[in-house]
Nucleic acid binder design. Sequence first.
RNA 1: GGUCCAGUAGCUCAGUUGGAUAGAGCAACAGUCUUCUAAACUGUAGGUCCCAGGUUCGAAUCCUGGCUGGAUCACCA
Length: 626
Amino acid sequence: MIPVFHNCCIIFAVWNFKRGTRSKMDLKNNIELTIEQGVKEAVEELFGQEPVSGQIQVQKTRKDFTGDFTIVVFPLLKISQRKPEETATLLGEYLKNKLEVVHSFNVVKGFLNLELTNNYWESLFQDIYVQADFGIVKEPAAGNPFMVEYSSPNTNKPLHLGHIRNNLLGFSVSKILEANGHEVIKTNIVNDRGIHICKSMLAWQKWGRGETPESTGKKGDHLVGDYYVKFDQEYKKEINTLVEKGVAREDALKNAPLILEAQEMLRQWENGDEEVMNLWKMMNAWVYEGFDITYRELGVSFDKIYYESETFKLGKKLVEEALEKGILFKKEDGSVWADLTDDGLDEKLLLRSDGTAVYMTQDLGTAVLRYQDYHFDEHIYVVGNEQNYHFQVLKLVLKKMGYPWADKLYHLSYGMVELPEGKMKSREGTVVDADDLIAEMYNTAREMSEELGKLDDYEDEEKKEIYRKIGLGALKYFILKVDPKKNMTFDPRESVDFNGNTGSFIQYTYARIQSVLRKAKERRLKWGFQDGKPEVILESKEKELVKLIRDFAAIVREAGKNFSPALIANYTFELVKEYNQFYHDFSILREEKPEKRDFRLCLSEMTGRVIESAMNLLGIEVPERM
RNA sequence: GGUCCAGUAGCUCAGUUGGAUAGAGCAACAGUCUUCUAAACUGUAGGUCCCAGGUUCGAAUCCUGGCUGGAUCACCA
């Protein structure tokens, strides 16, 4: 997708290295490159042959071994013509003599473990600490914006758990791309027209008796959803009646009066019938009011919203033009199709025989409109994996229509959310409603907090704010920690567990850190690196924390490359686990040596800052107390 | 049937371009608060990385074949 950017970075760094113009900072932040270059020189000098790229492997030393970085020497044996241990030892001695940062080394089988100097880690940490937004690229890269489409609701029913995964993913991916220096336009396509909304409209017209959100006290999207259900119930009744009369089920499905009426309504809508339009506008307005509340509670937002009702006409026009050019073909009944059999796919319907548009029609129009509007460098569709085929076709049809930028469309395909007892089925009433779920998470957070009683001296408003952060944080983390492309199981019981690998655990650690910092301030302590602190010998736990903090920048890049909030989530969990161990094993404020105490305050503060940054990329807020 | 995706501890999930003894959390059991927040920490137990071949010095990771589960192939969106 966008590996170009990252490759450039590496090439740039190496180029600089060769010219010897790298600053001290670069050296520190690219310690792997420094080591790699050292190994390269060592191999040339010791064994008289230049290693090819990929032969030198520098990786982080695994926890159960001594050292910071490890060089795998197996690939170098062909050059060295020696045993693994011997090769590693020779390289280790060379590096220890040549590189100032190498303090010592050890060899285990074919692995050369390097331990860097205390001074390296300490000053690396100092460099990180003084950066305002460590790991985040602030100035946008040159080029056109990225567009991220997510949410994409139908306006005939309220949002459910599946939409929640979609919204959280889309919002977080947008944040992560921004953190990688891209300008991002968050966009939404509202499927506000089509047979689905006509069904709700028809049911309301027939059985609604003028009900409104105001008269019923129901959220607008829920009210409209109720009529969608009502339509389905009545439709089924009609089908059963027809079947009892001896009509084949298949024919009954197509010919039940209600469905014919709904189809007629859709035609009237496309013809701009005034009464239908007014009903449509009214009911959609109800839905938007409801959606706005859910979006606000989820904390997601959009920069530009497209409505299918505004893009489908362009879509139809594009289809008609392509038909004239002979790119598409018309069947006898008047329906228009794309023939994709040469590309290993099937034929795809683009206009029904009655001339009305289908889903694909509007998506063609929306894509073209968006390219006209923004000339995006990349367009990411956050849409479930059940639509993989749809996006394959969309890209292909756009290409056939002659739009080279079709290659810039990327379908970020995520897996289904299932419940422990299986898939959500509206028929069986097992669909988890988004609003209900958010409320449930809030309530559990409240109960849990009240039980622990740590917020008893807070005002009610402040308490509510914290419950909200905790409840929502738990929900978001639970969903975002799973690799997007995988199906996931949502266990309601597990999701409200606030122990272990959860959002609450991370928030708790943040609150803990803030508590220590507050107490330090109360004692009027000053920490930081402003006035040249004396050298501190790092405990191994402290060094581990520094290493993990350093990793944040690379994780943000990796997450951007893979469109994966899960990488951020799992990283943060690692960091927080490490910090809690450190917190448990060492004193901070009670540490007697001031320089050690101050360093630990810096370390704690920095950990807190990274937690906050990382959670921000997931759209999760962190509380000062909990 | 065609195409695509997945399969790792009882459950939910990690596991960077192939590297050392495959890791967490939950659940179970045993410990740790007179202390900077115990929503925490420590320990015990738990594995045929779906199966079989292949490539490699080295495979959970790559290739081939099979098994299982899911998605999709609609005049639904």
